[in-house]
Nucleic acid binder design. Structure first.
Lengths: 236, 236
DNA sequence: GCATTCAATTGATAAATGTCAACTGCTCGC
DNA sequence: GCGAGCAGTTGACATTTATCAATTGAATGC
């Protein structure tokens, strides 16, 4: 199923090195679909039938237990998600829902597994991708276990500032309640945490954040490349 | 460097499928070393020069930030650790120290990377291993974000019971303060958490645990295969 | 056997975080 | 323009967790 996003997909580092023939096989087997907002694409526990590639829109990966829910990550275009479940042929550990209208490419997991057994370069890309993802989750665990929620927020803001170009003022690209969940706290606590960062020069107006004194905030947040370092790969 | 542990290493699923020639190359390049207890083998941030394989003893993987420290995992024989850093040729995200006298095999990371580019079966095993590890960390994140410390302890005990053979009484194979750190809490809190599980039939005597009424504890802990499911691979 | 040492426990207290309810303020549709 | 709906905020309070200090208890060395 051809799609105008093909060059972009081919450029993902997961696919950029593979043989053209293998890539074509994946593309032929796949299909592309549009989803409305708030659709649950995947439920944890389901068999992993497809590797998903988000072409446009955004997707929330979340997990539930005992009537509680937590947001694990946000997927943004163009990137793949649930790669690990696909290669293991194991049930999804996370659920996924569209946050907005989204266009998604679905590649049958069996084809992915078949191809990576034949195409060494593809296998190597998968190794690289999985290793990146693993390291990303380890960093997240360190963030959760070693920092208070105030510290997590401070470091999040500094990372976000960089991603947004480094200007004094930038936008959160996430709803605050989702951000709270990602950071492992409640909305109420996040709201108070923003207040708690005011002494360090953080000003909040809607989803616009201004960091008046970056040095000061860094002094509090103590960012560390082994936790906050940029390794934002596509999420498997 | 030949070693009596070679058959065991060969049997690790990371190495079991690879070509004999590739395996021999790794073995020739590697060396085996004994370490006393409490030796820091690896410091986070260091370049990842070697893939480590724990032959005997035990190793604690931990991380630090801002004078705080947390235990991320315990490695037990025979298994590899810090595979992800090795394949990415990136700095270690965790430190490692021996908990007791340990025998460790070290394979130069460069050789691992060279071999996995040539030996497809080895590459596929690495994919499998990394995917397992990734899923393991995701489960851990869900445990941390969705459960209170009392719930984490309850589920830990149930998992441990299974690993120990399923009997009513079994032993913790971890020092309590390390267990506390692994579960993301303080020693004091762990001590009180054990008390908090008494109403559910948990009895503690030193490092011997007895679960009088498993049904009752399960009712409280609500274990879930997507969090507690057995996927204990060697830790990369 | 006894003193030393250190993990583990306990109590008292403080800090962090969650819960519940009420309220604010904005957006969106009519 | 107005009101419904909803994310976000605030306050009061409860719960969870950490901290600090003191004590217990078990293992170890001499």
């Amino acid at each position: 199923m051809p799609d105008s996003h093909l060059p972009e997909i081919r450029a993902l580092h997961l696919f950029s090195d593979m043989e053209e023939e293998s890539f074509q096989r994946l593309v032929r087997a796949s299909y592309v679909q549009n989803f409305p907002p708030q659709i649950e694409l995947i439920s944890e526990g389901d068999p992993s039938d497809f590797l998903h590639i988000l072409l446009t829109g955004s997707v929330d990966l979340f997990s539930t237990w005992n009537d509680r829910e937590t947001s694990m990550a946000t997927v943004r275009p163009v990137s793949t998600f649930i790669l690990a479940a696909t290669v293991k042929d194991a049930p999804y550990l996370m659920s996924a829902r569209t946050m907005e209208k989204s266009r998604i490419m679905l590649i049958p997991s069996q084809d992915v597994r078949d191809v990576f057994e034949m195409d060494t370069k593809f296998a190597l890309s998968i190794v690289d991708e999985l290793a990146s993802c693993y390291r990303g989750v380890i960093k997240n665990t360190k963030d959760l276990k070693l920092r208070t929620s105030l510290e997590r927020l401070a470091n999040y803001l500094l990372r976000q500032q960089v991603r947004a170009g480094g200007g004094e003022t930038f936008e959160l690209e996430t709803e605050k309640r989702r951000l709270a969940s990602v950071l492992g706290m409640t909305s109420e606590n996040l709201s108070r945490a923003f207040k708690g960062l005011k002494p360090y020069g953080v000003e909040v107006k809607g989803n616009k954040i201004t960091i008046r004194d970056q040095e000061d905030l860094i002094g509090f947040a103590k960012p560390n490349p082994l936790i906050d370092g940029r390794t934002q790969p596509s999420t498997p």
